[in-house]
Design a binder for these strands. Structure first.
Lengths: 344, 344
DNA sequence: TTGAAAGCGCTAACAG
DNA sequence: CTGTTAGCGCTTTCAA
């Protein structure tokens, strides 16, 4: 079972392999007569020829492949499972890439540096990395001369492109909103708060809003765990255990909120009657939830689209070392917040 | 910026390129002295050599790449977006593949045959296709001598491997359960019901259960649209418009149920008080929903794991032309069904 | 306007 | 136990 190669096409069309290559690639430096062009195309069609992209990338150093790295929350844990955000982002990335004629090489990020293997081994034209922290071994990546786009990361490096959102501002917006509704004691629930991580920025935004309003920062109002439904549940338990001191809570992800709401309900508490809540992301879940979640909306599809665009632009023009796109956020009011009256 | 190649390593170690290759691949037919082996490894480490997998696959005809094709519900629509099922499945596939040293080449399936491009162009070692219908141009695939695993498809072909579930039986189980709870008029809500498609099987299971119980099949009890939240909403509207004739409904996907529940609520109806409901999949949504959904549970992670295993086994042993794995289903009772008393 | 030839980085007989 | 040699299928100077 011999796969038809460029030589077969060449023979069939009575031209050389290079001519076939020129025709197929529309090589701008070469000019092919209309006659041979049609002859070649006919042969291609007749033989059902499809170029071998591995071979092509071997000689041309372009692969039409974009590497996508999605974080694994924990070792041994599947990615994306815990948060629909990743699924939505990946959809958008895949779709955009495909429109542009690119395929995706997908990998979860292991603790070790599977970063590199995907990039170096496969000769991808660019890499999109979602949510890395500073200090993870990105140094090797830099040497590899492949455009890298960091999505939702606070690693700042003049050799990496950035797609992000105003995490701090978004959180501030959320908490301000709660304050505007009369809440005075507001909790903060998130995944792990790491130096220069997204949750840290959101925590800062939370602090900003409280300070602006002259409200005290309470140690006991902060809950930090993992970004998943289960932790939302546990946070609710913990909230009750700590005495239900806050009348409202800001959660850094909609999945967390889902768990939190459920956990509260299991203990006989309701949202927004007993606790008001604003969360973050506005994945489709937020709208499905009951109550539907008031949340900080980010344009996930745009994020994915932009990531692909930037990586491809950078691949086309290697002079572009660093670009930064911070996408706007807005608060979407739904049903998880109620007014809090003084002295209640 | 010269990428270090096998030749560089060979030079550094004072051996030939093939020796390096033997060492790196542990080629079983060749036997390398411990001394050269360590020398080669030292050179590899020193130079930071990483093999170019494109080149390798070009000459060895193995790519360590698995192609994954996920359906786009509609042209121009992103995959996975509409149903978390795909995300969960993909997670499991990616995770398993990575454990085995494989990367994933991901593509949504376009209307046309992007099937082929991914397989032929890239020299993947195997392909996992999710949810195709008979008649979609799979014939070309057959000629390509690449193992193909069809997940959730009723295409039956001795050259394709199959991973599926007992769709018909699962649906029957669900509807029987409702009947057991006293319901006599039961609706069916699904995506498009196509010949030999998953929804058709589930529809048949629905009919089976009704017939067993001697209940009539009502035309007006069947709702068919797309598998997404929005259609769930619309189905709820339609249900009310048609007069709320059924006391219970079987929906073929949890996302649909999410929409349906929401739609009902918007019109002042509650689940399970006004309408009981059983759905299908048991994605994480099912548990998050309120009420949490009584649903037919399928083991999505196992499905993904199995798909990878089968495709790799088939790649290793091309004699294996056709294997079939039908995974078990079970009903998970939660809170979306209530007893229906005679004459209510 | 086209073709010959070299080479991308690697593997795999085959010799030795 | 190791090296030589010939490709894998394609692109890309360079020459005609």
């Amino acid at each position: 079972m011999h796969r038809v190669s460029i030589k077969d096409v060449a023979r069939e069309a009575g031209v050389s392999a290079s001519t076939v290559s020129y025709v197929l690639n529309n090589t701008p430096t070469e000019t092919i007569s209309g006659e041979t062009r049609t002859r070649v195309m006919a042969a291609v069609r007749k033989l059902g020829y499809v170029p071998n992209l591995n071979a092509r990338s071997l000689s041309s150093r372009r692969s039409n492949l974009i590497g996508v790295l999605i974080p694994q929350t924990e070792p041994g844990r599947e990615f994306m499972f815990s948060n629909p955000f990743y699924g939505e982002l990946l959809s958008a990335v895949e779709y955009t890439a495909r429109q542009r004629g690119y395929h995706l090489l997908l990998s979860g990020t292991q603790e070790d540096q599977s970063y590199l293997s995907i990039a170096r081994n496969r000769g991808v034209d660019g890499i999109i990395i979602v949510g890395t922290y500073p200090g993870e071994n990105l140094t090797e990546l830099k040497r590899m001369d492949v455009p890298v786009v960091l999505v939702d990361s606070y690693v700042r490096d003049e050799d990496f492109h950035i797609i992000g959102i105003e995490d701090r501002e978004g959180a501030r917006m959320a908490v301000r909103y709660l304050i505007g509704k009369g809440h005075r004691r507001i909790g903060f629930i998130s995944g792990s708060i790491r130096e220069n991580g997204v949750n840290m920025k959101r925590y800062q935004g939370y602090c900003d809003a409280l300070q602006e309003a002259g409200l005290p920062l309470e140690k006991g109002a902060v809950y930090s765990g993992t970004v998943d439904y289960e932790y939302g549940l546990r946070a609710a338990e913990e909230y009750v255990r700590r005495g239900k001191a806050q009348s409202a809570v800001f959660l850094t992800a909609d999945v967390l909120s889902m768990g939190f709401v459920k956990g509260l309900r299991q203990m006989g508490l309701g949202v927004p009657d007993d606790v008001s809540l604003v969360s973050f992301d506005d994945v489709y879940l937020a709208n499905m939830a009951c109550p539907s979640l008031t949340t900080v909306h980010q344009d996930i599809r745009e994020k994915g689209r932009k990531a692909v665009e930037v990586v491809l632009e950078a691949a086309a023009d290697r002079e572009k070392r660093h670009t930064e796109w911070i996408l706007p956020l807005r608060l979407v009011e739904r049903d998880s917040v109620r007014e809090w009256r003084e002295g209640e």
